[in-house]
Design a protein around this nucleic acid. Structure first.
Length: 356
DNA sequence: TCTGGGGTCCTAGGACCC
DNA sequence: TCTGGGGTCCTAGGACCC
């Protein structure tokens, strides 16, 4: 049986890199993309120069400015970034029919067949894709190559920035052993803390726990932990991922005290969401409201329609209804969000209408 | 001036149906 | 003396990812 070869591609400081194409004077400077420093904005992407000051994504902007007073901040042009991302993945798709785009700046490529068809090693293919992305799009990318998605992803993280790293099957164990458990995809702050409380910080130490012990402590998640600690993970790519939801939310610079104060924002948000559904030619059956109170407590409420819709009036009135039932007098609101899900393609609807 | 915004997946419980 | 049970749909919350 042939060895499966998965590559993980990760664009380097993606948003900042796009901004630098548009404005080369931003090169070699501490730059962040993110929200305003006067409000409640945070950093979305930080250049390597900015990271030297301890700035990282999700950091409040005012804090980033404090760490580096001459930091250059640029607003996020997400539609623009999305176009650059598509250009990158168009190139990638020339090298394999199995490509899974997992986010705007990341994806997996199954190179198992490609190395035979194109008569090149995985590293040679990665080098070539890298050169093409640099030359045709002007972006820097890092590659990780391994026998499954997890190994490829961990490898790309170690290849950053602007590198390629392949983990051969016989090196997996020694590569993983000294790593922090937090590097395992799916192990976030909560799971990491629980493991730390058991005295486990490295993957090598995690391997000391039996599968039985892990499942008794972590339930179904435990089996996955046991396997991933040993480099065992899925190598199946989902090249036809479909969007499951569309959402839009806004954090206010000043908390809102009354339901009426939320209306202009939910109107705007509902309109934007319905526009996006129109572009994608889909209709939604479920509409959700998200409210975050001043103490950060967050609730969500969902209503499902019997007939799918993307009518702004329908979406907005459902959201208003849910606000009406869930607004607690005396508690101010820092965020409001709307989400639609449970999609149906538009053409099914027209067919049904036609048959009626 | 603590804590964005866009997503996915999973769990658990209740309603409902046969 | 009380407890069926499997399947599906819906809702709410939480963990996680970039």
């Amino acid at each position: 049986m042939r060895r499966t070869i998965i590559a993980h591609l990760d664009l380097d400081e993606f948003y900042v890199a796009v901004e630098r194409i548009k404005d080369p004077s931003l090169k070699n400077k501490p730059v962040v993309v993110g929200g305003s420093q006067t409000g409640r904005g945070v950093v979305s992407s930080a250049s390597y120069e900015a990271r030297k000051y301890g700035i990282h994504s999700a950091m409040p902007m005012y804090q980033a400015m404090k760490l580096c007073p001459h930091l250059i901040r640029v607003g996020g042009k997400f539609r623009e970034y999305s176009k650059y991302s598509s250009s990158v993945f168009n190139i990638v798709q020339e090298y394999s029919e199995f490509v899974e785009r997992t986010s705007i700046d990341e994806g997996y490529i199954d190179l198992t067949d490609s190395v035979i068809k194109l008569k090149r090693t995985a590293i040679q293919l990665a080098e070539e894709i890298k050169r093409r992305i640099d030359k045709d799009v002007g972006l820097s990318v890092s590659f990780g190559i391994g026998s499954n998605k997890m190994m490829a992803k961990i490898a790309s993280k170690h290849a950053k920035p602007n590198g390629i790293l392949e983990i051969l099957s016989n090196k997996e164990e020694s590569f993983l052993k000294p790593m922090n458990v937090g590097i395992i995809p799916g192990v976030g702050p909560k799971t990491k803390e629980r493991l730390n409380n058991l005295g486990i910080t490295s993957i090598g130490e995690l391997r000391g726990l039996s599968e039985k012990e892990l499942t008794s402590r972590f339930g179904i998640h435990g089996e996955g932990l046991y396997k991933r600690a040993r480099g065992i993970a899925s190598s199946k790519l989902n090249s036809k991922r479909e969007r499951k939801s569309i959402s839009n939310e806004r954090t206010f610079n000043v908390n809102i005290q009354t339901p009426a104060g939320l209306i202009p924002t939910i109107t705007r948000i509902s309109m934007r969401i319905c526009e996006q559904m129109k572009e994608k030619e889909i209709l939604a059956r479920s509409v959700s409201l998200k409210l975050r109170y001043e103490n950060f407590e967050t609730i969500t409420r969902t209503k499902t329609l019997s007939k799918a819709s993307r009518n702004v009036g329908v979406v907005k009135s459902l959201v208003e209804q849910m606000i009406h039932y869930n607004f607690i007098p005396g508690r101010s609101i820092r965020l409001v969000g709307v989400r639609v899900s449970n999609f149906e393609p538009e053409n099914i609807q027209t067919e049904l209408n036609f048959m009626r």
